Amino acid sequence: MSEEHLAAGSACPPMNDGEVRLYGMRFCPFTQRVRIVLNAKNIPHNVVYINLKNQPEWYFKINPDGKVPALDTGDEVVLESLDIVDFLDQKFPDPPLYPSDPELKNRDKEFIQKFGKVVGATSKALHNKDNSPVDSYIEDVLEHLKEFEAELAKRGTIFFGGDNPGMLDYMMWPWSERSKIPSALQDKEFQFPKEKFPKLVAWREALKDVKAVGDTITSLETHVKFLKGYQGPNPKFDNL
Rank of each mutant, 00 (worst) to 15 (best):
H45M: 07
G166E: 02
G66V: 04
L200D: 07
N42Y: 09
L200G: 07
K124Y: 13
P235M: 00
S2L: 10
H144P: 08
A153D: 14
V141N: 01
E110L: 12
S2K: 12
E189R: 09
M167G: 06
N128I: 04
A121H: 09
E205H: 12
W203Q: 03
V37K: 05
G162K: 05
R155K: 11
G156R: 08
G162V: 06
V20N: 01
T216F: 00
G162A: 06
L227M: 12
L152T: 06
P182L: 00
E189F: 09
V37C: 10
L126N: 03
A153K: 15
T218I: 11
A121P: 06
D238N: 13
K117W: 08
M1Q: 11
L71R: 02
G166V: 01
P93N: 05
P133G: 01
N106A: 15
K199Y: 10
E103H: 13
N42G: 15
A7K: 15
T216P: 03
F237D: 00
S179H: 10
M15N: 11
E177G: 03
Y230P: 08
A125H: 02
N54C: 09
W173E: 01
N63D: 13
P44L: 00
F237Y: 10
A184L: 06
F159C: 03
R21M: 04
L142K: 11
L52N: 11
S179M: 14
M167A: 07
Q55Y: 09
W173N: 02
H45A: 05
K67G: 06
K194F: 08
V119P: 08
E147A: 14
D169Q: 10
K199L: 08
K53Q: 12
V85I: 15
M15F: 10
K117T: 09
D187L: 08
Q113C: 14
E3P: 12
V78K: 04
L185V: 08
P93Y: 03
T218V: 10
D140H: 12
K117C: 09
D86W: 12
N39T: 09
D101S: 13
G74F: 03
P44M: 00
I50S: 00
P13T: 04
C28A: 04
D135S: 14
N16E: 15
S100R: 13
A7N: 13
T218A: 02
D83S: 12
F148H: 01
Y137N: 04
F92I: 13
E147F: 10
L88V: 08
M171Q: 11
Y59H: 04
S179F: 14
R35V: 10
P29Y: 01
H127K: 12
K117P: 06
K41H: 11
Q32T: 10
P174G: 00
E110G: 05
E139A: 13
K124I: 12
P96W: 03
E147R: 10
